[in-house]
């Protein structure tokens, strides 16, 4: 029972945790650029400011979809934490993408529409990789069950090193970080799917993004198995690595993103899994 309670609490506070992660990220990024950066609580100050603003919308459908994106994100996190099947959690995430893209497609702004289309390209890039990663966990642990993975005595990282690296390189695609931030691409399409949201509706989309942080980094944590300190260390390392990568690289074309995922990341992960299955 203790495990479930903990996970339920984690899910409940996920937006706050995600907000803190985002706050830390802004500071880390600023320090990497020799800036001081905003205070840690800045995302929450933004939150209150945005909630206070006069709500403006393009039309109801669009606004509703922003809220649905937030709900679907939160629910997929709940499924990841409390359900016992990782694969189901991966597929639940698609619902969140559906809400976001339908919303973005529904307005007549070219930026939003292009952003939605690119969001789909993001999904094509990371979705099969996520499935492969979960299958990799199954190969190591012998179960799709989250609890079994968290109680696994060995270290999944040692058996899935290539899958881990591929996943780390796919994280920028999931969290919209440079070099794979093509869907948001602020200088180019001004935020893509989120451009038309404002006030509280924007806040919904934004909080959804915070939840995605928790969702993604939890997968990194799983690579430590029952060695939670290792998991935490991995999360820290990946967090710093992704931010460094974000700071150091320029944005790539979306074709390059899809090609990189399909011709590099997915084949090497598949090989990792095949050899794992053969040598076991």
């Amino acid at each position: 029972m203790k495990f479930e309670t903990l996970m339920l609490l984690l899910t409940l506070f996920a937006p706050i945790i995600g907000g803190f992660v985002y706050g830390v990220e802004r500071i880390v990024k600023a320090r990497m650029q020799s800036r001081v950066g905003p205070p840690l609580m800045q995302p929450f100050y933004d939150f209150f400011k945005l909630m206070d603003k006069r709500p403006l919308m393009v039309h109801s459908l669009h606004a509703v979809m922003g809220i649905m994106y937030f709900i679907a994100c939160w629910f997929s996190l709940l499924v990841l934490f409390l359900g016992n099947d990782l694969l189901v959690a991966v597929f639940f995430h698609v619902i969140a993408v559906l809400a976001l893209t339908i919303g973005a497609f529904s307005v007549r702004s070219p930026y939003s529409v292009i952003g939605a289309m690119r969001e789909l390209m993001h999904m094509i890039s990371y979705e099969p990789l996520m499935v492969l990663m979960v299958v990799g966990f199954y190969q190591v642990v012998g179960s799709f069950n989250l609890k079994d993975i968290l109680n696994y005595d060995g270290i999944p990282l040692l058996q899935l090193p290539v899958v881990f690296m591929a996943f780390v390189l796919a994280i920028p695609m999931m969290l919209h970080k440079s070099p794979f931030d093509v869907a948001e691409a602020h200088q180019e399409i001004i935020g893509g799917p989120e451009i038309e949201y404002s006030g509280p509706f924007y806040e919904a989309v934004y909080t959804g993004k915070w939840i995605e942080y928790v969702y993604v980094f939890f997968f990194v944590f799983l690579f430590g198995g029952s060695h939670y300190w290792l998991g935490a260390l991995l999360v820290l390392f990946v967090f710093l690595f992704v931010n460094a990568l974000d700071n150091a690289t320029a944005r790539l074309d979306f074709r390059k993103m899809v090609k990189f995922s399909w011709f590099v990341l997915i084949p090497v992960s598949a090989f990792n899994i095949i050899f794992l299955a053969l040598w076991r």
Binding site: P55, M57, L61, V64, F75, A99, V107
Partner: peptide, 25 residues
């Protein structure tokens, strides 16, 4: 969630929210 996504647009209308035109630079 999915039935909300596919059916809500027809039933939900935010009454007291002002509308704006999309941004087109």
């Amino acid at each position: 969630i999915l039935s909300l996504i596919h059916a809500l647009p027809f039933f939900v209308h935010f009454k007291n929210v002002d509308t704006a035109r999309p941004y087109n630079c």
